[in-house]
């Protein structure tokens, strides 16, 4: 009578141990292959040539060569933009929304709420949006990144008092994994497609637009729509306002005000930034 349940328990235990072992070994095997991809190709160190006795003209000549090499590396990438008139109109619209609505609002908001509180709000929203980053890490085979996100959620939700502070970064050196569905698609070689300026959102392209829709499924803020459509829209707007108030809008204003063609500037900066994020 006494033995039977414990035997059962033991059997169960053994099964569980086996399962865990199986799981661990699988992730480990995956991890190995993931790490193998991460190892950069060992670059050959260029040999050192004695260059001291080169005459000035020769130095000049090599400089010219370098210039050419640098020139090629900066070759502008062709951005598909078949609906440019629409995009430019939307860009102007978004720009006005920013300057006439978000900018004055964020100034008022910043005057009311001190910066540490606003940083806390940003941390809260970042923490709550963990599912999107977590699953996109998994979709891209970045299991270590997914683990980091899981740990961050646990640490920040508890020690970080509901996500308002970020002890995971501060004390555990766990960096946020900036992944989204657009990047996942890019990882699987989906091309960016045409450039689109989305009203009230900003620069994007066909791939990242689809990515945005995909991410909504994983976004707890978007789930608020089931409660009330105003709830999610309100939360999103508030989040944007909060972000703008921390940044003081400097990033956008500087980008645009320094440019002779702000639309092209933003488009190019967006494309470059996305390319980098996909590579990472």
């Amino acid at each position: 009578m006494f033995l039977i349940p414990s035997q059962r328990g033991e059997k169960r235990m053994r099964k569980l141990v086996l399962l865990v072992f199986f799981f661990v070994s699988i992730t480990y095997a995956f991890n190995i292959s993931v790490y193998a991809d991460d190892v950069p190709d060992s670059k050959e160190q260029p040999g050192v040539v004695a260059s001291e006795d080169k005459s000035i003209t020769e130095v000049d000549a090599t400089n010219e060569e370098d210039t050419e090499e640098i020139d090629i590396e900066m070759e502008a990438v062709f951005v598909k933009d078949p609906i440019q008139p629409f995009n430019r109109a939307m860009f102007t619209f978004n720009d006005k929304v920013y300057y006439w609505l978000f900018r004055p609002l964020s100034k008022g908001y910043a005057a009311v709420l001190p910066e540490p509180a606003r940083l806390g709000v940003r941390n809260f929203f970042t923490n709550i949006r963990m599912p999107g980053r977590f699953f996109n890490c998994i979709f891209q085979g970045k299991f270590k990144g997914a683990g980091t996100e899981m740990l961050r959620l646990v640490i920040n939700s508890t020690l970080g008092v509901g996500g308002f502070s970020d002890p995971a970064k501060k004390y555990f050196k766990l960096d946020i994994q900036d992944e989204d569905f657009g990047q996942t698609l890019g990882r699987y070689n989906v091309g960016s497609g045409a450039f689109i300026e989305i009203p009230l959102f900003g620069p994007s392209n066909v791939r990242d637009g689809i990515g945005l829709l995909g991410d909504m499924v994983l976004d707890p803020i978007a789930w608020l729509t089931f409660v009330s459509p105003y709830a999610s829209t309100g939360a999103n707007t508030y989040n944007t306002l909060n972000d703008v108030s921390i940044d003081k809008g400097d990033t956008y204003e500087n980008l645009v005000e320094g440019a002779i063609d702000p639309y092209i500037m933003v488009q190019d900066a967006y494309m470059q930034n996305r390319t980098k994020k996909i590579k990472e």
Partner: peptide, 22 residues
């Protein structure tokens, strides 16, 4: 310095795109 890249965005590249476009 001949270029600064901030978050993957090369400053010179953004200038070049604008100039090319014009």
């Amino acid at each position: 310095i001949y270029d600064i890249e901030i978050e993957g965005v090369s400053l010179i590249h953004t200038y070049r795109s604008q100039y090319n476009h014009i």
